[in-house]
Nucleic acid binder design. Sequence first.
DNA 1: GTTTTTTTGTTGCAAATGCAACTAAATCAA
DNA 2: TTGATTTAGTTGCATTTGCAACAAAAAAAC
Lengths: 150, 150
Amino acid sequence: MRDQLREIGMIARALDSISNIEFKELELTKGQYLYLVRICEEPGIIQEKLAELIKVDRTTAARAIQKLETNGLITKQDDPYNKKIKRLVPTEQGQALYPVIIREHEHSTDVALAGLSDQEAEQLLRLLKRVRHNIEGDWDAVKKGKKRDY
Amino acid sequence: MRDQLREIGMIARALDSISNIEFKELELTKGQYLYLVRICEEPGIIQEKLAELIKVDRTTAARAIQKLETNGLITKQDDPYNKKIKRLVPTEQGQALYPVIIREHEHSTDVALAGLSDQEAEQLLRLLKRVRHNIEGDWDAVKKGKKRDY
DNA sequence: GTTTTTTTGTTGCAAATGCAACTAAATCAA
DNA sequence: TTGATTTAGTTGCATTTGCAACAAAAAAAC
């Protein structure tokens, strides 16, 4: 049975659910951790790229980011050369949350990979990267209205 | 870098997004395909187990299932021995959608696994099953209010 | 240098999501 | 067999989500 995608869906929902519950005590509402970590890791990234990076709808990202700004965790900075884009940068308060988010994430990774050898964990990562790469094109295309034939 | 969980998240969001868009022309609104396939494969399953199976909040499942019933795709049948539970069964109309959903899913699997050898695809599945198994306990516990230490 | 297309961002809705809080049946404990 | 706990299901409410539809800057085409 080729159940790889189902397993991926189950794992992703379970982990997202756990993270959302655990981050609530940090004043982070649903999904916000996703955007905040990425902004901390790539300060100056713009909204559009961020949405593409984490595979989420542009408008969903827009509102999550808006809320992060309202809550004082990031700022939107104007670019000196491009009046259209807004560069996302964590505030000190946002930065302060980064290690906490990472720690939780590391713990979940420990749990998830328990019992796997280093070789297996690495192999899993390699394979997942290939799968993600394989699927990216379709996501982009379908999002833009392209019809897949099957 | 132990980015396995991030890759899983990206893949899952991308695929879910694609499926939701593609199933809209079948009158299936967001997420419904998830529940319907499982009910078709395991007719008689109850709501609580279904939510646990696909790793989704009980109340979210409740409403998605309610809508499937309203739309005539499944029925909730009383159990003769247990007045509390309701067994979920696809209607003929629901059954009719099953092969369509599977076909889409098979296509996505083709895309996702492109370039992987049979051995690699099998290895991926084995590893994902272990990861899913590893994480299930935590999901259950955290959902029920347990605090993880990390 | 102007027109067309793409990129980036926003807002209006309608719908899904999920935590609390609540029933009621079933199971467990005494 | 009574009382406590767990299981299964529901509803209220606030929030997130995402498709349309839009605006404006930037880039590409001509």
